[in-house]
Amino acid sequence: MIPFLNLKAQYAALQPQIEAAALGVLRSGRYVLGEEVAAFETEFAAACGARHAIAVNTGTSALHLSLLAAGIKAGDEVITTPFTFVATAAAIRYIGARPVFVDIDPKTFTIDPNLIERAITPRTRAIVPVHLYGQMADMAPILEIASRHGLIVVEDACQAHGASYFGQRAGSMGLSGCFSFYPGKNLGACGEGGIIVTSDDEQARLMRMLRDWGQDRRYHHVLEGYNYRMDAIQGAILRVKLHELDTWTDARRYRARTYTQLLAGGPVDLPVEAAGRRHVWHIFAVRTPDRDQLQKFLAEEGVETGLHYPVPVHLQPSYADLGYEPGDFPLAEAAANTVLSLPLYPELSVQEVEIVSKLVRQNAYVD
């Protein structure tokens, strides 16, 4: 059996350090925020090339607070992509704002900057590009459009820990950048977690208050805030794992190159790393019109795969009130119908990559 993800293997490799970090928090008696979370914030901000990091309980909370601190209000419009995890749109809706979708670049799966301006209206206040599957969106034209129209850019970098765009790290290019530490992410907690990075002092000040009931000091609530604080155990564990992130990223990139070499000219379309971008390969998604049959064949041969994402957000029942219909975003819909995520993680052996690749090729000859 080749699993799609193997968190037990990651834990086994770091078991003494992770357990020591967790035990240290348990013995400290400080279980929410605290010194470990503060230290992690400092270290993660430095890794992203940002001045501040604000640790929260989920990546969704990170997006929500970033938009709130940026001044997005009910009735505003926020441009984003329909080909993403639903949390991107959910965070916009939490405020009462409206997600306005733009189709994707089919090569990178990220929002197509050439389509953004036609979606701008007098109500547009922000753009949320999603750095999907571990590759950053085409940020230069996005930032230029935003500057020209007076719009805010908040990066959804929840799948892009350590990715870069012409040398600039994910999360550092917009007003703020949001990350998830859901366990399966490239940098994952042992539970839930998220963080926002920004180099804007005022944004950082607002988000620190908003995550902790709007307090500027204990029991003085100057904003309507939320309980979005990070648990201290997660902060301590993430400090341990952050030291491994570059090594893990190198391992992911090597396995992605191996897949690419072994599947070149084969029966599936391969993902690409765009010029100037450092892809961190959170997901290795191939494309084939026979996706469902390939997934079934691989499962029968003992290989787990994933679907990221089989229904774009604009076609989800919970967003039907936005008024979008099938065919509105044909490239996102085509991707949703054809992508299949192959196993890819640092602990995956090269031999296992070879087995999966051989089976993908073999499937082309199965009736």
Rank of each mutant, 00 (worst) to 15 (best):
R169E: 08
R169C: 01
A170P: 01
A170W: 05
G171I: 07
G171L: 04
S172K: 06
M173C: 01
M173Y: 02
G174V: 01
G174R: 04
S176H: 06
S176V: 08
S176F: 07
G177Y: 01
G177W: 03
G177H: 05
G177A: 04
G177C: 04
C178G: 03
S180W: 01
S180D: 06
S180K: 02
F181H: 14
F181D: 07
Y182R: 07
Y182F: 10
G184L: 14
G184W: 13
K185L: 14
K185P: 04
K185H: 13
K185Y: 12
N186W: 08
N186R: 13
N186M: 14
G188I: 02
G188M: 09
G188P: 05
A189E: 07
C190N: 13
C190V: 06
C190M: 13
G191W: 01
G191M: 00
G193C: 00
G193V: 00
G193M: 02
G193Y: 00
G194N: 05
G194E: 02
G194R: 04
I195R: 11
I195C: 12
I195L: 14
I196E: 11
V197L: 12
T198G: 04
D200P: 00
D201R: 14
D201Y: 05
E202Q: 11
Q203A: 14
Q203R: 12
Q203N: 09
A204L: 09
A204D: 09
A204Q: 10
R205P: 02
R205I: 00
R205H: 10
L206K: 15
R208P: 02
R208T: 04
R208E: 13
L210S: 09
L210T: 06
R211M: 06
D212R: 06
D212L: 04
D212M: 00
W213A: 09
G214N: 06
G214C: 07
Q215V: 00
Q215N: 02
Y219V: 01
H221G: 01
V222R: 15
V222Q: 13
V222T: 15
V222W: 11
L223V: 03
E224W: 12
G225Q: 08
G225E: 10
N227Q: 11
N227L: 09
Y228A: 09
Y228K: 09
R229K: 03
M230G: 00
D231E: 08
D231G: 09
D231T: 05
A232H: 02
Q234C: 01
G235F: 05
G235L: 04
A236E: 08
A236M: 05
A236C: 03
L238T: 04
R239S: 15
R239K: 15
R239I: 10
V240L: 10
L242N: 12
E244C: 13
E244D: 15
L245W: 13
D246H: 14
T247V: 14
T247I: 15
W248R: 15
W248N: 15
W248I: 13
T249P: 07
D250P: 07
A251V: 12
R252C: 12
R253G: 05
R257P: 07
T258L: 15
T260R: 14
T260M: 13
T260A: 12
T260V: 10
T260N: 14
Q261L: 13
Q261C: 12
Q261F: 11
L262T: 11
L263F: 11
L263V: 10
A264C: 12
A264Q: 14
A264R: 14
